[in-house]
Computed example of a mutant assay.
Amino acid sequence: MTAEIRQLNKFFGNFQALKDINLETSEGEFIAILGPSGCGKTTLLRLLAGFSAPSGGEIYLDGEAVASKTMNVPPEKRNLNMVFQSFALWPHMNIEDHIRFALKNHRYMEKLNSKEMNERIDEILRIVGLEQFKHRLPGELSGGQKQRVSLARAIAPAPRLLLMDEPLSNLDAELRIEMRREIQKIHKITKASIVYVTHDQGEALAMADRIIVMNDGKIEQIGTPEEIYESPETSFVATFVGKANLFKGAWKDEVFKPEGTQLAWRQNNVTGSFIKDGIFPLRPEQIRLTKAEEEKLQGRIMTKQFQGKEYHYSLDVNGRTVIVHMPINESYEIGETVSIEPDIIWGWDKKAPEN
């Protein structure tokens, strides 16, 4: 299913939750809506589902208008399903009955006879790996198994659009990684279009075809995971996805002079907003630490965290905190003063060019 959103706005009283949202999705695409709490991502998902109507703008599904300021097609008349953060399972129904209920009551699901119904239930249980648990109640399942039931119920009637509202946020770290793989597998098998809301950048980067980064009710950037991570267009995207450090200073052509220094850092793919604001973004893994040298930018190590293959450092650099990730074979100690420079692949010089 394709979706098109035009100039979408949503007010709750005097509060504007969504501000002129424009978006187009392709058939079978996995879209992640990424942003902090309160940015409007769940409100956008609820408007797509039909749970509420927009205050302005329009929504089209497969080219057909389903929502505007004056009309709102209800959820049951849109060929979609939703997976909730809270699982939303019925405690008195076993897994098999959850799937059976979805197959019987979805408007767009063709009617099945008893044999076809049982075959479809078994097929769905195989997809989510719950064949041996079909007669268990939700109270007898682990968190990961409950989320699989929620997914199974959603995909059983083969909806053309699958909406997911932070479905993994209630699971522990290991289960979240496992369920990412399950959701990717389900997307490949069902070929349904997916719109997935999350505040976890790892989930979005790992699973999505494209990511919509939202902040304060607006879209900050749309792009592939690689584009969002490697070429952020705003300071918010740079710091929210990948936790970039933002160094202040001045740009001249492709050369950046850090504030209070005569250094020159060269970079040729920084977007216009950073140049305009006098900012040089560097992610923790794009910074190199060396023994302190007077002609370089210096900082004092405040914390050091062992992370298996690398150390994570926080440094005080002229009163600002800078986060750096370094290989395990390059170790520094808390309290040590070190020099900071962009990784060599980014290009740098010791002194700024003459004006």
Rank of each mutant, 00 (worst) to 15 (best):
F87C: 00
N14K: 15
V255Y: 06
Q184T: 14
Q7C: 06
K134W: 03
S231A: 03
N170K: 04
P75M: 01
L162W: 10
L18G: 08
E110L: 02
N79G: 02
V324H: 08
A158P: 01
Q307A: 06
G272C: 04
D165K: 02
N81R: 03
T42L: 10
K69R: 15
P54I: 00
R148Y: 13
V213P: 13
T261M: 13
A208V: 05
D20I: 09
V270D: 01
A192G: 08
S142I: 00
N215E: 13
W265D: 07
I340N: 00
I334K: 15
F30A: 12
G40W: 09
A208W: 00
T198K: 13
A173H: 00
G272W: 02
L8M: 05
Y311W: 14
F247P: 04
W265C: 03
G50F: 10
I345N: 10
R136C: 02
Q267A: 15
Q262W: 03
N318R: 14
S314L: 10
R283K: 14
G63T: 05
S55G: 04
E254T: 01
G57Q: 15
N269A: 07
I99M: 07
T25F: 10
E131L: 12
K304V: 11
K350L: 05
Q16S: 05
P54A: 12
P91Q: 01
V213G: 02
R46Q: 14
E330W: 12
I194G: 12
N355A: 10
V149K: 11
